[in-house]
Write a protein that binds this DNA or RNA. Structure first.
Lengths: 344, 344
DNA sequence: CTCTGTGGTGAGAGCGCTTTCACGACCCCG
DNA sequence: CGGGGTCGTGAAAGCGCTCTCACCACAGAG
């Protein structure tokens, strides 16, 4: 069954035409008479011809593949369906354009060399990069190699905002956080604490800014802020700190749902009732949020859609997307929406 | 910075040798005098030469890439960190052998054609396939195309076990389930119910068999079995069914942790105490299991390790792995271990 | 009837690499 | 000192494809 796969040559011979004609037909068939085109297509079908992508990309200088780089050595990737959902969105969009998805998961610092070399090596036409921290070397690598790149989340490195060609997809973290905290205020909460995420990520920073916005502050009250790391353990710890420092707090805005889960755990351990004594709001609307006890009020974002948009942006920059996306590709910020449940 | 990338030719000229010699050096340097080798390596470094993979695989007939096919149109992928962890294991192993990971997420039935064509098209050297249900067309596609393939989970299609070349990595679902149920019996539980997973997957079947083993049965008691689908909602529903049918049950073995979470929810809603009234055991040891209320007794498996092993098996079959793995590659079944927590 | 288009087709170069093969240098043994 | 190795190196032939360019046939204009 799987002997030597037929080549263009074989199809040409079978159809009684030249290689060039077969090539034309395979690539859209423009400028080939209908009768010939049909004959060639029949031969292609009969022989089960599939173009050799290596040969093709050798001459076209395009690989038909895009790298998805996830630089998250932490355990976060495991517990957080975030990436899985984004990947699905990306995968769907790329598949529609017959583009392959090359997944690169970074572990240690040494991986950066490997990835950098790979990206610079012209093995892919573009890259999607995720969860970069402020000092991540990846963006500059991509930039230096001239590889078209779209970032997941607003890039935070110095000067990023000034680059007119920078492409990213972010969610309105600041607006979402503002909604969450305004909601707490409307419910009559007055001592609203915050547990941040890692502040070298713009998402965590933006959420903190949204919190400040809603309270009309420019600086957080030192007694009502604690730093987490977007994990449940971090949330547990930070909540404990907050309670020790400010026993009178009546609400907490957690940097994400995992953090909120940890906070709930600490509150339960200390015998505080949610939401009667302390209201809790998370962020992300993970599936677990709805299942938490009590069900978590949180902020929802269209994660899968963000993935799809990243892919679309990149495809447009590569000149591959459908004509639907008109104009120059530009950064996208998607809306966030409060989901009120039992915890607030 | 990113003008035309240097070719072999350029390096050869720079080092004052022939293309052939540069090629030899780049590919290990066997049979090249030390002095020349050093000179070539210096040139490679200076010019920043990276081999063009398209050209290389055109002649070697190897792509240096492996497809990871995840056929799970359900929502399961989202809520379950299972795949993320396996992917990490796979990624790590492949990276060590400089092999790329091509991720293919299947959605609808039409995707099967696309993937089938792609796999048959010689774009990858091998494939890893996940979560196949009994009637999945993918395996036969892979088989027909002669593409070396390793499966995640024991394949369940008819005749699978007879194929001496079949490669898979599975965990000892039956043994794990047996441990879990024996544990419940040791704790004095007598009416132990079971919530199964989707029975077209071998993992769900094997866990059910392990349950039967531990109870010394060949047939489940119809009053003590309910069918779930490996989701929390399914667990919730199945638990309700069981309680309606057998109010006197004192323990339940859930097909996986998500199912167990749902069961916990139903039990709580009905005012039953866990573990006093009903003991609950899950399977998988997801992070959420430890965080459930009460913390879930469950069965742990080395998920990341399974991913690593799948990759290793494939690499060995492709003749790429280190010499460490001696002998013919063969299916692997990894052990499962009971983790006792508060819920039982 | 010749000249200029026009549209369809084929010949052939060449993408950057690996790999065979031939060749020269060198060594050892007789 | 000559024959038969071994070892290291370079020349060159492709791998399967795209794409330029030349070519041919035919149409319409002069």
């Amino acid at each position: 069954m799987h002997g030597p796969r037929p080549t263009l040559e074989a199809v040409a011979a079978h159809a009684g035409v030249s290689r060039a004609t077969v090539s034309r037909v395979v690539n859209g068939g423009a400028g080939v008479r209908k009768s010939l085109r049909d004959r060639v297509q029949a031969s292609v079908a009969e022989l089960g011809y599939v173009p050799n992508s290596a040969a093709r990309s050798l001459v076209t200088r395009r690989t038909g593949a895009v790298a998805v780089v996830i630089a998250e050595p932490e355990t976060r990737v495991f517990s957080d369906p975030f990436f899985a959902q984004q990947l699905r969105g990306i995968s769907r969009e790329l598949a529609a354009c017959d583009t392959q998805l090359l997944l690169m998961l970074l572990e240690g610092r040494t991986d950066y060399d490997r990835i950098g070399r790979y990206l610079a090596g012209g093995h892919v036409d573009g890259a999607l990069m995720f969860s970069l921290h402020r000092d991540d070397p990846l963006p500059s690598m991509a930039n230096a190699s001239g590889l078209p790149t779209v970032f997941g989340g607003r890039p935070g490195w110095p000067g990023a905002e000034d680059d007119p060609d920078l492409l990213y997809v972010d969610t309105d973290n600041r607006g979402g956080a503002r909604q969450a905290v305004e909601h707490l205020r409307r419910r009559g909460r007055r001592r609203i604490a915050v547990i941040t995420g890692p502040l070298d990520q713009t998402s965590a920073l933006d959420r903190l800014d949204g919190y400040l916005d809603a309270l009309g502050l420019t600086e957080p009250d030192p007694a009502l802020i604690a730093h987490g790391d977007f994990t449940a353990e971090g949330g547990e710890r930070a909540m404990a700190e907050l309670l020790d420092r400010s026993p009178g707090l009546d609400a907490v805005f957690a940097g994400n749902d995992l953090t909120a889960t940890g906070a709930l755990r600490t509150l339960r351990a200390r015998g505080l009732r949610v939401p009667q004594d302390v209201a809790v709001v998370g962020y992300d609307d993970l599936e677990q949020a709805a299942w938490a006890e009590p069900a978590l009020t949180t902020v929802r974002q269209d994660i899968q859609g963000m993935g799809r948009m990243m892919a679309e942006l990149l495809l447009r920059r590569l000149g591959l997307a459908d004509a639907s996306g008109v104009g120059r590709p530009a950064p996208v910020v998607t809306p966030a929406r409060l989901v009120v449940r039992a915890s607030s």
